[in-house]
Every structure is written in structure tokens, then in C-alpha cells.
Nucleic acid binder design. Structure first.
Lengths: 335, 335
DNA sequence: ATGAAAGCGCTAACAG
DNA sequence: CTGTTAGCGCTTTCAT
């Protein structure tokens, strides 16, 4: 195949084939200063000939890997997919590549996956891990630039990119209140009342305070569901059959909202629903979910931007907040 | 922090702190044969103390990285997400970790992303790349175990996991024919008539041959759409306004089917639709998509199984085919 | 402009 | 049971 006995070519093989030193090959590789055209030519030819590919691991031992890591908790949530689209887009013209690590479910809230990335010497990490402790994240940020997506804490060591969840929750609630609803329930995840500063925590708190402000505190009801459309369906169906009297539900995100809509439809009830995120399917006519849009793509672009700035020498932490926007569709109607 | 001047601890630091040799630490790390309890204890203590984490890159230079790579072309297609779920599940009890590489759009059909994974010394790769050439894949499989997901070629060098696309397309077509439809269109991607042995190619060919068998060859019409729900919506809306007379559409996958349904609804037409994959949203009542189910999770589990077998010494290629199943919902009705 | 050589952090014989 | 040592493939001074 290449006269190397089936083993992949190394920089040394290229050097020998081109009749130059390893250092010369390395320079061509990184197109560093000080290589003549003739040398570059011979080396490039040898590389093609031997089908040479530099090993990132070997390179990693000396310096940059030109790889960013992105940790994600949930691929079925299309909001994260949008963020990913933005991140990839921002990297298109750079020499950086991306690897994604999925958070193991039930593990320490994505921390293991972030560490897996760091162990692989990525040059920076964008992570979604609302439940990780600031300490554990700061330990990581001490060695590797870290952008936390969807966190509202303001560490000195890592940057954050988040939506304004208080403003978003207010948009959702005002819309329902404006429609005349007074019995509004909130459908959210179990973690929402543990991590008060997580997106879901803030949405929940804002829901409660808005209800209280309007003197509706005693009509507030929180429905708790596990992650996923199916779980939300079951939780809502259960609440409905348990005699839920709310005429509207503010769901903590669209997946949950869609599960709720399904339960409501099947129960033959009329309950207005507002979601959060504006995932693609929300606009489907058969669903028509009124929801709070978050600029996921832009947020992904900015996350990578923050990483690149860090690599460029910035040392002060930056905490970026993006504005949400209410998208009115058919799933929320006047009482 | 750890007395190392902010730099991360290495195996040497641990050795010094524990008063033993690097080799000893390495043995504890891999829990290899021949370490006394007292030594293990001291070393473990030093590791915790220094917050030591082995560098995968350094380890990669000698042997395994205990990392599998998964290359995916499209995160908005929930079928791939299901495959991913299966793959992660299969790895749960092993010491392997996973990194995912997204195919750059427009690039050489995912090949770049596969190579990025190989450059990072993963121990095996599962990839979705219907358009990559067998030669390019065999070049990779020569050095790294490779499982191609959704390919129907039978290379000697790489394994494959695929659904039986011919059987699936027959299921879809028989269903529509059984409902009395004779004017059936096929909505597919541009690549379907280039890569005849890709899933979409086979579905297309089977569509055409089934129409021909029934003497309906002159009623066959192929609607071409780019990837994604929106593109399918536009393509279908266009076809409809151009006077499409089909009473049914067999869509090459669910995303396309959902886009088509939307166009049909908005045009106020009655056209039956059958999709392919059975993504989660297909079962939503407002959509109720009749579709061909593929066992994505099991296929993901099997993909990883094949990789593990290879690492275990298997040298013969295996080509696994999974049976599809028709799921009848409301989107396809009798004429 | 080019090359020699040291070393990144780890593993795996091999000796003791 | 424990330590010494020789690399793995690459980058990076530092000479020439």
C-alpha cells in the first residue's frame, strides 16, 4: 500500500521519503516561517504519496489540538441543536474542529463528559450543565477556557451565555394573563426547585412571583415531570385526571409543552399552553405552539466567539445575556 | 492550589508525591497485575490530593484511548438521535467513552469528520455517510475498526448496520396501494438518484419498481427536496401549485413527510402521506404520521457491538440488516 | 534555510 | 512487588 507494512505514515516516514528532516516536515505542516518553495513542494508530495495524516494526540503533547469540545445533555431537545448549528457555523472559517460529548444520564450532571473532553486536550469547552457546582467548573476553567451555556451565575473564571429567563417567563405569563387566564399552572422538571438559578429554576420562580403579584398565589400549581415529551404527557394526563382546574399551562420548555398539549387533546379539554424555546416543530400547524423564542443559533455563535477571545488572551470573564421574544400561535386562547 | 504552580498534575507528580516510580502509578491507573495494597493506597491518595487526571493524548501514543467516535450528518433528524441513544446505552457498562463529530455540511459527505475522529486516535468509529466512496472508507478501515450505519454495500473491510430499505419501501407502497391509491408520488432528496444503494436510493428504486409492477409507471412522479422540513414544505407546496394530481405521497423520511403534510394542509388538499423512520413526533395526534418504523436504538446497540467484536479480534466483515415495521396512523387514508 | 536534539506524559518490557 | 528505561509522534529551541 505505502511500503510501510500497513502501518500509518508518521512524520518521520514523510521526512525520509522527502529526504529532509522531521523538523522541516513539521514546519511545512504548520506552515511556519523558513521553508523554501522547493522543500515545501517535495514534502507536500511525500505527504500525499504516503497518505500522511498528523496525529492529533502527538501534537497535543506539545501544544494546541485546535479542537473545541461541546458537551450536551440531550439531543432530543432541538434548542441545543440550534445552539450547535451556531457553534459549527462560527467555526467554519477557522482551523478548529469540534467534538461533542454527550452527558451520561444520571451522572454528575454532565461533569464527567466535560472532564472527558478536557482529558482529550481540547483547547476550549462549551457546556450545558445547569446542575454542576461552580467549584467543579472553576477547577476545570483553571486549565481550559470554559463557556457555560444557560447558566446565570457570574463566575470570575468561566464565561456564560444565557437567555434572559426572567424576561422570557414574564412574556409567557403576561400573555396568558392578558388572555384573561387566572388559573395558570406551571409544568416543569424536578430540578427546577433545586437549582434556583438554572433556566428552569428562574422560570419557575418568575412564574410563582408573577402569580403572587397578581394575587393569584393560591391558584398557582406546579406540575412536575421528568425530561421528555412522553413524561410530560403522562404528568399532565395525571394532573388532569386528578382534577386540575387550571385553564392554562406555562411549560418550562417546548418538549414538555407538546407532551402537555397531547394529554389535553386526548382528555378533550381546553387548556391554553405556552412553551419555551421555539423549537422547529412548534410552528407546525397541527401543533401551533405559542412559545418564547430564544436566539439559539446566535447564542451558539457567541459561545464560540467567547472561546476564541479567551484563546486570544482575554482574562476577564464575560457573562452574556440574550433577549427572548414571544411568538404567538394558536395553542393559547382567551378564556 | 496543588503546589505545582497552577499546571495540571502529571503521572510524575503523583509518583513523587507518593514516593514511588512512574511505572507504579501507571500500574495502579490501569490496575495491572502486581501492586501491593499499601502502594495502591498511597498512590490513590496522591492522585486525589493532586487532583490528577491522566492525559488521554499521552496514553494514545502508546495504545488504546478507550474512545469511540460517532460521526453524524444531521442532528435534527431524530432517527440518528435514537441510534445514538442505543450506542450510548451499549457503552454504559464499559470503560469506553464516546465523542461525536458533526459532518460539515457540503463537505466530502462526512469523510472529513470521520478523519477528524481517526486523527484523534479513537479506537473505533460508527459513521453515517451514505455518499462516501467505498475506497475512502476502506482506507480508513485499514487502520481503525469502522461500522457504517445505513449502507448496503458489503465491503470486506468495514462492517455495516442498516435497515431493510427495500422491504420498508414495499411496506409503505403496499399500504398506499391497499388503500386504493394509484397516483402515488415519491418525495425524496436529490442524492437518491445518484447513490442508488443508499437508503434513499433504494427506497426510490423500490418505489419506481413497485409502481411499474402495478402498471402505474406513467403515474410515478418524484418530487425532489433538499434536507429538512422547511425545504420539503416548499417543494411540496410548489408541486401542488404546479398541478400535482397524486392522491398520495411516499416520503423518504419523516422530516420530509411532515413538511409535506404541512403544505398539503395549507393548500386545503387531501393527500395521504407515509413517512419513514417513525421519529417521536410522528405519533403526535396533531400529526399522526403513518410511517415505517426502524429499530434505531437496537441498531445503535448493534453498531457498538460490532466495534467491540472487532477490538476483540474478529476480522471477517459483518453486514447486519434490520427489519422495518409499518406503523399505521391517520395520515394515510383510503381514496 | 535546514537539521539535531530534547522533551511532552504515558505505557510496557525488562531487571532486580 | 517495584523501579529503570526506551520509546510513541510531534513541536520547538538552538546550532549550523
Amino acid at each position: 500500500m505505502n511500503g510501510l507494512g500497513g502501518r500509518a505514515a508518521t512524520i518521520n516516514d514523510v521526512a525520509v521519503a522527502a529526504g529532509v528532516s522531521r523538523a522541516a516536515v513539521s514546519k511545512v505542516l504548520r506552515d511556519a516561517y523558513g521553508v523554501s518553495d522547493s522543500m515545501r513542494e517535495r514534502v507536500t508530495a511525500a505527504m500525499t504519496e504516503l497518505n500522511y495524516r498528523p496525529r492529533v494526540a502527538a501534537r497535543a503533547m506539545r501544544g494546541r489540538t485546535f479542537t473545541f469540545g461541546i458537551e450536551l445533555p440531550d439531543f432530543s431537545n432541538q434548542f441545543f441543536t440550534r445552539m450547535l448549528t451556531g457553534a459549527l457555523q462560527a467555526l467554519e472559517e477557522t482551523r478548529y474542529q469540534v467534538v461533542i460529548a454527550p452527558a451520561e444520564r444520571g451522572s454528575r450532571y454532565g461533569l464527567r463528559a466535560i472532564e472527558a473532553l478536557v482529558d482529550r486536550q481540547v483547547d476550549g469547552v462549551v457546556a450545558v450543565a445547569p446542575r454542576a457546582t461552580p467549584e467543579s467548573l472553576e477547577r476545570i476553567a483553571a486549565h481550559t477556557p470554559l463557556v457555560m451555556f444557560g447558566r446565570h451565575d457570574t463566575s470570575d473564571d468561566y464565561d456564560t451565555v444565557a437567555g434572559d429567563d426572567v424576561a422570557g417567563a414574564v412574556l409567557a405569563m403576561e400573555h396568558l394573563l392578558g388572555l384573561g387566564h387566572t388559573d395558570i399552572a406551571h409544568l416543569t422538571l424536578p430540578e427546577a426547585d433545586v437549582d434556583l438559578s438554572s433556566p428552569h429554576g428562574l422560570r419557575r420562580t418568575t412564574y410563582l412571583s408573577t402569580m403572587a403579584e397578581r394575587g393569584l398565589a393560591d391558584r398557582a400549581v406546579i406540575i412536575t415531570s421528568d425530561e421528555g415529551q412522553d413524561a410530560a404527557y403522562r404528568a399532565t394526563a395525571q394532573a388532569l385526571s386528578d382534577g386540575l382546574r387550571s385553564t392554562a399551562i406555562f411549560a418550562a420548555h417546548d418538549e414538555l409543552a407538546i407532551g402537555a398539549l397531547r394529554a389535553i387533546t386526548e382528555a378533550g379539554r381546553t387548556v391554553s399552553v405556552v412553551g419555551y424555546d421555539d423549537v422547529p416543530i412548534a410552528s407546525y400547524p397541527g401543533i401551533g405552539l405559542t412559545t418564547v423564542h430564544q436566539p439559539g443559533v446566535e447564542m451558539g455563535v457567541r459561545s464560540i466567539g467567547l472561546l476564541l477571545e479567551r484563546l486570544d488572551g482575554r482574562t476577564e470573564a464575560v457573562h452574556e445575556v440574550f433577549d427572548p421574544e414571544l411568538i404567538v400561535r394558536s395553542s393559547a386562547k382567551a378564556v
